[in-house]
Amino acid sequence: MLVKKMTELFSRFFVKAISFAICISVFFTLFNSPSYAAKTSMTGDYAKDTISVVKTLQIAVETPKDSPDKDKVRDESLALITDYISRYRNRGMVNKTQSFTTMQTALNAMAGHYKNFATRPLPDKLKERLTKEFTLAEKMVLRES
């Protein structure tokens, strides 16, 4: 009887000890590994970033239809748009400005075309609209800062 109780106590203790060891190892594994922030091309200065994005995307808009780099330009533009919007969308001091809403409208139009019509070049009407909105957003951001 005593041996049976000792065996039962030992098995309970062993199960709890193993569970505790697993919990500790999971805890230290999760919190001991370094965490890396996503690399971004944004500096955090809204005015400078907006002007930089405008300049870069104007070059993308002006890329000829038969350019061999059009796929690379499209992918880089989409990455830049995502980076810019994710950086400034949730910033209250920025997302209420006219320059940001104008930029967001232009970026949504450009990204929408690139995602839905990946193999087609930007239509001329869209190019004109993007050029106007980028110019307007650049003027507004310079005025606001």
Rank of each mutant, 00 (worst) to 15 (best):
S86Y: 05
K70F: 09
T50V: 05
T102A: 05
V94E: 06
Y84K: 00
D49G: 10
K48A: 09
T82Y: 08
F31K: 09
K127R: 14
P123F: 07
L107I: 09
D69F: 11
D69V: 13
V54S: 10
M42H: 09
K125S: 15
A118I: 11
S67W: 04
N90T: 13
A37L: 13
R129C: 06
S41G: 15
Y36E: 13
I59Y: 02
L57M: 11
A37C: 02
M42W: 05
K125V: 15
T43A: 12
R120T: 14
I51D: 10
P64L: 11
L122C: 09
L126Q: 11
Y36G: 05
E76I: 11
I51W: 01
V26Q: 04
P121K: 00
R74V: 05
N90C: 02
L126E: 13
K70E: 06
R120Q: 15
S67M: 08
K115C: 10
Y84R: 04
T105E: 13
S41D: 10
Q98G: 11
S86W: 01
E62Y: 07
P68R: 01
E62N: 13
A106V: 08
L57I: 10
A21T: 15
L30R: 04
C23S: 14
H113M: 08
K115A: 14
N95Q: 00
R129L: 12
F100Q: 01
E76K: 07
F27E: 00
T50S: 15
K65A: 14
E62C: 03
M93T: 13
T102Y: 06
Y46R: 03
A79E: 09
K125T: 14
P123R: 05
L122K: 03
S86Q: 13
I81D: 02
D71M: 04
M42A: 10
P34Y: 05
I51N: 12
T119G: 02
Y46N: 09
A106H: 02
N116S: 15
I81C: 01
G44R: 00
R91N: 12
V54D: 01
L80A: 02
T43C: 10
T56V: 06
D71T: 07
I85T: 13
G44C: 11
Y114Q: 12
L80E: 04
F117K: 14
T63S: 08
N32Y: 09
